[in-house]
Each structure stands twice: as structure tokens, then as C-alpha cells.
């Protein structure tokens, strides 16, 4: 459960102060799939970063599962991110010196959730889930854009986060790969039961969500259920198998 109250984010640009986020408040119940939309410069990525604890608001509060994250120190926040948050980015952000398997294992190793074979098994399972079992020993440079994003997806889910944050996950992909990644995202989301917050300006992507939050000039100008309600129906119909 995510609770955002009176969130403000101001940045200083030379002599001027610019309010990126202006007094935003909203709640996201557990397991909900939310799309955050808006034009460029509306504050979508900033909002995502604040929820992820990657930055600190100028004022306001953010609670994740009842824990106020704006008061946490950086290392405490890092631990929280490791345990509760997963990330998928437009630029994948794979570590180029690690293989696909090692990239997926990274959060497990950092958080000492499980060592040695346990981590390998979990990572291998997720790579198989995204269809890359045969590429586990390849480096990012040896993978296509779509494959890299799938590895990033697997890594995002490896810790079974309660919240997954995705910032334009298909932005660098062609439409075919983009669709494939989105399907995986939604399937894994249902399997793992996470809350999914997706930032996008892609209408097609947003249509898969249960709810849309529209931002403009740092303010919420709309907070509606998805017009097609497709996201909810798809999740009900999926009947996806659990972890093998």
C-alpha cells in the first residue's frame, strides 16, 4: 500500500526555483496496476523517483506499507528498496560486466536473502520465465534491446517486491518487443502479486492498467480507472502458473 500526501518537489535551476511536483496526494492499494501519464515535463519520472526513495521531496510524505520513507537515511532507504521495491527503466541499466544470470542475482546478493545455489536457482527460474534460459551466461552487450529489458524484468522481480516501479520500460524498444515486454511485465506482476506503477506516455501501454493518474505541470489533473478496464479483466483471466 502506497500513501502519498501533500508531496512537493522543488528544484533550483540557477537563480530560479522550479516546482516539479506541486502538492500531490494519492493512494495506491496493494496489487493495483497504475499507469502514471502526462506530457514531457509533467513530473512523472520525478514522482516515480520520489516514491522509489531515489530522491527526497521538498515537503510532504510517502508511506510504503505503513513506513514513512522520507525520514529514512540513504542506506536505510537502499535496504528498503532492496527488499520491497523493484525497478524497470527505459535504459535497462544492466551492469555490463555481469552476465544475465549475475545481473538477475544482484539484488539477492546485496540483500543476502539467499546465497550460493539458492540465488542461482531463483535467478535461473526468472530468466526462464522471461524466455532467456539459454542466454543466462551472456553479457548485456551480447543481447538485443528486448532481451536486455527482459533480463531487467527478471531482476526487478527476483526479490518478490511488494512494489514494482517501471519508467518507460518499452521506450527504447520496437513495438513488437515492447508488446512482448509488457505482456511479461503484467504476467509476472500477477504471478508475484506486486503493486505496479508504470510511468508512460504511451496510450496503448496505459490501457493495460487498472487505473490512470494524469499529471500536468506537477499536479494530478485526472485519476480514473482505465477506460477499457482491460488490466483487471486480463488479470482475472490469466490463470498463470506459480513458481516452479
Amino acid at each position: 500500500m502506497i500513501v502519498v500526501r501533500n508531496l512537493v518537489k522543488t528544484i533550483r535551476n540557477g537563480a530560479h526555483a522550479v516546482e516539479i511536483i506541486r502538492n500531490i496526494s494519492f493512494d495506491v492499494p496493494s496489487r493495483q496496476f497504475v499507469a502514471v501519464m502526462g506530457p514531457s515535463g509533467s513530473g512523472k519520472s520525478t514522482l516515480l523517483g520520489l516514491i522509489a526513495g531515489l530522491d527526497w521531496p521538498s515537503s510532504g510524505s510517502i508511506l510504503i506499507d505503513g513506513q514513512e520513507i522520507t525520514k529514512l537515511r540513504e542506506d536505510e532507504m537502499a535496504e528498503l528498496r532492496g527488499k520491497k521495491l523493484g525497478f524497470v527503466f527505459q535504459s535497462y541499466h544492466l551492469i555490463p560486466t555481469l552476465t544475465a544470470l549475475e545481473n538477475v542475482m544482484l539484488p539477492l546478493e546485496f540483500n543476502r536473502v539467499t546465497g550460493g545455489n539458492g540465488a542461482v536457482q531463483r535467478a535461473a527460474y526468472l530468466l526462464e520465465s522471461v524466455g532467456l534460459a539459454d542466454r543466462r551466461d551472456h553479457y548485456p552487450a551480447q543481447l538485443s534491446g528486448g532481451e536486455q529489458q527482459r533480463v531487467a524484468l527478471a531482476r526487478a522481480f527476483v526479490m518478490k517486491p511488494s512494489v514494482l516501479l517501471a519508467d518507460e520500460p518499452t521506450g527504447n524498444l520496437d513495438s513488437e518487443n515492447g508488446r512482448h515486454v509488457l505482456e511479461l511485465l503484467i504476467r509476472l506482476n500477477k504471478e508475484e502479486g506486486t503493486t505496479l506503477i508504470l510511468v508512460t506516455h504511451d496510450e496503448m501501454l496505459a490501457s493495460q492498467a487498472e487505473r490512470r493518474i494524469l499529471l500536468r505541470d506537477g499536479q494530478i489533473v485526472g485519476d480514473l480507472p482505465s477506460p477499457s478496464g482491460r488490466g483487471r479483466r486480463d488479470s482475472q483471466q490469466a490463470g498463470v502458473p506459480g513458481e516452479g
Binding site: N13, D55, P57, A78, Q90
Partner: peptide
């Protein structure tokens, strides 16, 4: 190194976290 580096937009270091 701020984790916010990961975002597309540069984020100012003006707002300090507790203990930052």
C-alpha cells in the same frame, strides 16, 4: 553517488535527506 542518477532527468542535490 545518488541513486537518483539513474533517472532520466538530473535531480538537484538541493533537497537533503536526513543525514545527507
Amino acid at each position: 553517488v545518488k541513486p537518483a542518477l539513474i533517472l532520466r532527468k538530473e535531480v538537484s542535490g538541493e533537497t537533503m535527506a536526513p543525514g545527507q
